[in-house]
Nucleic acid binder design. Sequence first.
DNA 1: AGTACGCCCTGGCCGC
DNA 2: TGCGGCCAGGGCGTAC
Length: 272
Amino acid sequence: MPELPEVEVIRRDLVRWVVGRRIRRVEITEPRLTRRGEAPRQVEKALVGRRVRALRRRGKNFVFDLGQDSLIIRLGMTGQLLWWHGHDDFRPDQHTHARFLLSGSGVLAYRDIRKFGEIFLLPSESVERTLSLGVEPLEAIFTPEVLRRLCASSSKIKPLLLNQAKIAGIGNIYADEALFRSGIRPTRRAASLGWHEIRSLHRAIRAVLQAGIRHRGSSISDYRDAYGRPGRFVALHRVYHRHGKPCCRCGTPIRRIVLGQRGTHFCPKCQR
DNA sequence: AGTACGCCCTGGCCGC
DNA sequence: TGCGGCCAGGGCGTAC
């Protein structure tokens, strides 16, 4: 399940291979992937011959800057962006639904078992407006004060962390981990958090996201980096998918509840 | 604006 | 060993 750290790891892997290159050929073989935009053939046609000027990330989205237009790729639950150095070693399987052949050599493949991901084009000037995402939690603009303002709403803190329109890029894993590290129960009303808790949560959000990137992501099921390798961060998870196991801090069994239709993991003793 | 729910999709897992 | 049924869950659409 790719969240901000996983997307960032892949982006960093890919930058050196794709930026400056031209898209020679595109094949999108799964029409579901382009469901929010034009048909696969139209997207293919619009991409061929374009040069990748930059590869950015916004929340959990890849933004390939092609000049006038930008190619947006979102991995959904099980999407993978895989880089193959040469056309010859490219090994697509039944889950490989799109391929981008780049100038020089190299194939960027999109693989997605559950097909929740998306590929679409947007005019570059309207990317921000259309994606309508909240603040980037690793950028300087995300301060404790900004988090405090977001927490003024009446919603519970975990659904708020998952709300992409408020904070972009946090998903289920990093929300649970950040709440554990700040000692805050996922069911707490955001507006009930004190200034000390806000600061602690702010620090924890940045720390878990940075640790996720440093350890090359969380491979719970299908996440792989651009070279097909799993990340190592799962070994450092303190609550996510650890229900029934002892809390690393106090030994109390980690509990799992469902909150906002999401599996939610926390220590009933350490998180208040 | 919040909250809840269904939908999309497939592999993995459980129970019989 | 086989198979039906359920579950995970990001994001969106819809309803209240």
